[in-house]
Design a protein around this nucleic acid. Structure first.
Lengths: 202, 202
DNA sequence: ACTATTTCTTGATGCAGCTCATTGGATAAA
DNA sequence: TTTATCCAATGAGCTGCATCAAGAAATAGT
């Protein structure tokens, strides 16, 4: 039965943080809904309000902004077992300046704001779980900001392949460049330079 | 009495987020301790573990990293009613790569990790309060990352004076430049350029 | 008040990464 | 097979900001 339960991956995820009681599991079961997005489909589009939290079960989403000159800047990739949302829009009920779309066909689990509030009031343990989640997300985000402020493009790329080895060959160069904050051409040259210094033996 | 109570500003702060009961106020009273730092004094030094959370009552702290070439990169300023910590170090009990020090004589309220855990277990409301705090911090941090990835130095500076008008004249150009991620000379030129285009009338 | 230190300004030069343009390969559609 | 689309590689020139240097102005220390 649990094998065909689409919410199972999320229960495992929560349970890994803080063990859940049965009634808490049932609450998750009741409040989260799964949804499929096709490649290139929007999960959230600029101007809309982010109405639900997204947990990625399978596939890969990206959170990004298009600037005035039309350039894409990726804030975050979300593959298996990652969350991706515009929290500012979600909690403030404000129009989002960001987009989320699918880089691959993707299965998500979603919860609306009202259901999340219900979750918090009916089972205060989720206040703690989401506090811990937020702490971890904050720490990762701060690491990323630090990288961006203090490192060269080359260091940022090296750091990227260390932290996300599973994404390097899964994403196109264009996506990775938009994440690193450089032009795709620069990433191409950068890789070329690295592969030469890495094995100086022809 | 409450006028001479050093924890009062924090009680007001928490109360503004979610109203506290008396026993919760007493818990805050018991677990937070105030401490004074003189200008230039370290609150946290690279290599040490971040052993307590810092809430600034008066004054101003900075959170920063020194890179390989000796350049300072400021992640965050914390003036009145702001928190500043290395959460990665605090929660992971790991040596910090960051520094925190005082830009002015500063009064803080601090809580240790053990006392914070006690706070959470004795009054679960604090799980919620800190969840909300973390959400707000995350949203601010994401805004900053976005700025950094997608904007020119000029736009970042304009945005800085909009978001932190009270800090612009309180901090030296060197500190602001280290926050924006540019050289102090560049900030000087940038300001010069702005003041010319702002009032083109001599 | 005087000296020392820090802070700001301005100039000259260099470079990392951007932009624009071209080419070739790979995948997908007709 | 042909045609269209997407992606990676590479060259040439440009630009925003860094770096180095030196002088002026403001602040702090004694």
């Amino acid at each position: 039965m649990s094998q065909h339960n689409p919410v199972e991956p999320l229960l495992l995820y929560f349970n890994g943080l803080i063990p859940l009681k049965n009634e808490e599991k049932e609450l998750v079961q009741a409040k989260f809904h799964h949804r499929l997005y096709r490649k290139r489909q929007y999960v959230l589009q600029e101007g809309d309000v982010c109405t639900h939290l997204n947990f990625v079960v399978r596939g890969c989403l990206r959170l990004y902004k298009i600037d005035d000159r039309g350039n894409t800047h990726i804030l975050q990739f979300a593959a298996e077992n990652y969350w991706v949302n515009d929290l500012g829009s979600f909690h403030g009920l404000k129009a989002s300046q960001l987009n989320i779309d699918a880089l691959e066909d993707t299965v998500t689990l979603q919860i609306t704001r009202d259901d999340l509030v219900t979750l918090f009031t009916q089972a205060p343990k989720f206040d703690r779980i989401f506090r811990v989640l937020m702490e971890n997300s904050y720490i990762r985000l701060q690491q990323r900001l630090l990288q961006n402020i203090s490192s060269t493009a080359e260091d940022r790329y090296k750091s990227f392949i260390e932290i996300y080895p599973h994404l390097v060959n899964r994403l196109s160069q264009v996506q990775i460049a938009a994440f690193l904050g450089i032009a795709p051409e620069s990433l191409s040259r950068l890789r070329n330079g690295l592969s030469k210094t890495a094995k100086p033996k022809p």
